[in-house]
Design a protein around this nucleic acid. Sequence first.
DNA 1: GCCACGAATGGATCGTCGCTCCAAACCTGT
DNA 2: ACAGGTTTGGAGCGACGATCCATTCGTGGC
Lengths: 234, 234
Amino acid sequence: MGLMATKPRRAPRRTEALSRDVIVKAAIEILDAEGEDALTLRALTVRLTTGYGAIYHHVADRGDLLAAATDDVVARLLADLVADAEPRQAPRALALGLFDAIVAHPWVGAQLNREPWRPALLDIYERVSEQLQALGVPDRALSDSASVLVSYILGVAGQNAANARALAASKMDRSAFLATVAARWSRLDPVKYPSVYKARTHLREHNDRQQFLVGVDVILAGIETVNRAGARPA
Amino acid sequence: MGLMATKPRRAPRRTEALSRDVIVKAAIEILDAEGEDALTLRALTVRLTTGYGAIYHHVADRGDLLAAATDDVVARLLADLVADAEPRQAPRALALGLFDAIVAHPWVGAQLNREPWRPALLDIYERVSEQLQALGVPDRALSDSASVLVSYILGVAGQNAANARALAASKMDRSAFLATVAARWSRLDPVKYPSVYKARTHLREHNDRQQFLVGVDVILAGIETVNRAGARPA
DNA sequence: GCCACGAATGGATCGTCGCTCCAAACCTGT
DNA sequence: ACAGGTTTGGAGCGACGATCCATTCGTGGC
């Protein structure tokens, strides 16, 4: 075996140590920049200039990584959202903070829906419960009330994630995409879909964030009404 | 070229004609029996004893197939749900019908969340709008009100789909799975999660269906309250 | 009666994915 | 110096969705 001068030595080791945290941060950057489908283990190895083994040494699997990224974003958000002094505004502020975070990171919305038992959603549920309790919701109605609000937030989060995915897949910019959607709605049969058809004119002035807030207000009003009226009939 | 007596003839053609509808029905059967991950094109070719080409001739791609299956289930459901004469009960009946359908076909919940612009959800939105209108919700508040309810339903649907996926992945039966979940909740830190911890005792007597209905009532009460109180301040 | 042509079909094949596995490289204590 | 454990890099596996093309069927024109 003579000239093995240039035998394919394996690549040198990374200088900075790898860690679960470094990997999660890199994952978040990929997710935010290119969407959830872009987070592949191969893309991660390229970005971190490492191999699969190194990553799987710190992370169980892709699901674990997505969950860790979601927990990270949600935990940071909840930490930043200091409790509003005004109890009546507190749930709104919390909900709006979640909404904004999910708009900024649509993949978080998808993940919360995919695995609702992970810490991220538990934290959210806990915070919502506390604020509803501070608002005067009786203990016996707390878990039901919190569930309604959390389910609503999850629903909106999921739709937001779906829209972001569709936008990314269409490879158009935001305004062109919205125009396409509006055009498709206008082509709907007004006989089969009278309500949807009527709503299409509002599409231009439509504001997702404001509509979300209206929904929160409706639910808060409903919680109040139900607990005031139905004060334990039994 | 002597003895080609047993040259590998391709398999004979199917006798009954293939069609988009036959394929969709087969997909629904697989989805109901084995969950959404089990719907692979290979499984479909086996079940239909055919090849990929035949399927892709009738169906654009896997997403198209899932959407078609969802549209089929939802359309059948909405057709069966004849309008309740009593307007106050109509939205509840609709919501409950959707809930039951999604419990029976958890993959429908996931798909509604994944692609909320497809006909299935449009139909749902339309029906909800009609019934809210019949209930006396003013036109200007219709789209917002319908959105809240639909988003809530979507949120619950998504959680249900997630639970079904987790149950299937765990390969346990339903009661063993619930016991595992309850055990995990009991191990939560009561200091960090006081509200969740308090709610754990209700887990035994917990009824998803009833909780869903409570949520619907809360939202309906909220819609009514908001529209009574805020009668156009401007 | 036959043939030509489009529609329908079966299956080999491709590229990509998540993940496993193992040897190489590194670290640490003795 | 060296042994044992930890961390790293990357070849390779099986499964997936999707494409592609040769084959086969059905059918309308002559």
